[in-house]
Structures are given as C-alpha cells and as structure tokens.
C-alpha cells in the first residue's frame, strides 16, 4: 500500500512538512518496502486552491493515506472524496512517521485542522 508524507526534503530522513497544499515535497512510499518517490510540489506558488491541486496529485499517485502537519478545508474535502485517509499533527522525520503509522500510533483526522490559506507565507 502506498502512503504519502508531506516533506521538507526529498528523502526519508527529511522533516515532515507541517503544510499540506504548499509542502516542499510529497514522499510517496510503499509502507512495507519503504521504496519511495519524492515529488517536488508544483503547487507551492499557486495563487489559490493549492490544497485542492495537491490532493489530486496525491490521488493520482494512488496513495491511500496522507501523513502531514495540517490540512485545510478544501484539501480535506478533496482527499475525502478521493477516499484517502488523512492523518494530521505528524512531525519528526519522514521515516519515523511511517514507522509510527505502521505501529498504529496515529488516528485518522475527522476534519480540517486549519482554515484556508494556512500554508501561505506569513
């Protein structure tokens, strides 16, 4: 099964990015083998709708779960429609996050954790 982690860098030792729609990279990894692909996020500088675009990207990569810091309302709605489980409040490095997920330490989020435009530079 594929899992997607928002990441500040392009490998498993990178820190989890607390933003979803405007994270630096999406690490799409196989939960069992940890084989992964790092996708540079093309939506960082988009004017609006970054969460929606990023959700579709994650869906296209066929991930079933997203591990991230926060998701906004539009991203949450889109991920839900795609049948992707969302887990927020994740920090530390990407590898640790996957390990914790495998141990069942996370609970799926029931709603958006932040409001729109959270990921825009302050």
């Amino acid at each position: 099964m594929k899992i997607c982690i928002t990441s500040q860098g392009d490998n498993l030792n990178s820190e989890v990015d607390p933003r979803f729609g405007r994270c630096q990279y999406f690490i799409v990894a196989d939960v069992e083998t940890l084989e992964f692909e790092a996708v540079k996020n093309p939506n960082i500088d988009t004017m609006g709708g970054a969460g929606i675009q990023s959700s579709q990207l994650v869906a296209e990569k066929q991930a079933k779960v997203v591990l991230t810091g926060n998701v906004g309302p539009n991203a949450f709605q889109t991920l839900q429609a795609a049948g992707i489980e969302v887990i927020t409040g994740v920090s530390g490095n990407v590898k640790e996050a996957v390990e914790k997920y495998k141990k069942g330490e996370f609970k799926p989020t029931q709603g958006p954790s932040v409001s729109s435009k959270f990921g825009l530079p302050k």
């Binding site: 988009t46 709708g49 929606i52 579709q56 889109t78 429609a81």
Partner: peptide, 23 residues
C-alpha cells in the same frame, strides 16, 4: 474542466467532480 480552470476551482477524482465556487 479542471485542466482549463486557471483558479483551481475544480477537482476531478476517480468518480467525483468537485466544484469550489469560492475560488
């Protein structure tokens, strides 16, 4: 539709099309 939308107001997933009218 999502391809031509400059404002990311439409998402097309497997069997769902979502419209975000505020965008």
């Amino acid at each position: 539709c999502k391809q031509v939308c400059m404002y990311n107001a439409i998402a097309v997933l497997n069997k769902t099309t979502l419209v975000f009218t505020e965008l």
